[in-house]
């Protein structure tokens, strides 16, 4: 009979004469017994049930249990539209470059610059007269400047004479 064996084991248990296997048997018996127990066996039931339940305590996962982040190479695949800023930046760069090339070409072909290289007079005689007139104006103005410079030269000579450098 199971109960008599348990009784015997319990007596040994309280006297510390049981082996580890016998104690495990007691725990197992009380944990899995259903229904009413004989009165003399009820006393120890909560204790062995408690021991059995304590075996179920398991440690929560430690951070060292899992692989480190660098050990697991996770490839994150994002949909195309998630990285829209990248594409927007490329588009902006292209637009900027295109605009600068376009404006450079426009400036190069600007008609204002081409007037300098274009003939303004079709009649050579007229052109010669105009050139003469322009040169006369230039010469007249140069002479004006020369007269002033001569005055300065006199003044300079006079100063040197006073200082006695010419002697």
């Amino acid at each position: 009979m199971e109960y008599s064996k348990i009784r015997e084991l319990l007596d040994k248990y309280w006297e510390c004469e049981t082996s580890l296997a016998e104690e495990a048997h007691l725990r197992d018996f009380y944990a899995h017994h259903h229904g009413e127990l004989p009165p003399d066996l009820r006393e120890a039931a909560p204790l062995f049930q408690y021991y059995h339940a304590a075996e179920a305590d398991t440690m929560p996962e430690l951070f060292t249990d899992g692989p480190a982040p660098w050990e697991t190479a996770t490839v994150i695949v994002r949909p195309f539209w998630h990285s829209w800023m990248k594409y927007a930046a490329v588009l902006l760069m292209a637009a900027g470059l295109g605009y600068s090339v376009f404006s450079f070409q426009q400036r190069r072909d600007d008609p204002q610059d081409t007037y300098a290289f274009r003939d303004t007079y079709s009649d050579p005689k007229l052109a010669y007269q105009e050139t003469q007139r322009a040169l006369q104006i230039l010469s007249k103005n140069l002479n004006k400047g020369k007269e002033q410079m001569e005055k300065l030269s006199y003044f300079h000579d006079a100063t040197e004479m006073i200082q006695g450098k010419n002697n």
Binding site: L20, E23, A24, R27, P46, L47, Q49, Y50, Y51, A53, A54, E55
Partner: peptide, 27 residues
Amino acid sequence: LMRRVHGLINKLPEKFRTILQLRDMDG
């Protein structure tokens, strides 16, 4: 009932409690 058993074991002197737990719970 389990709480009461837990309490009565915890009330044991430290040495008694540890020895009891090492034997009966840790085997």
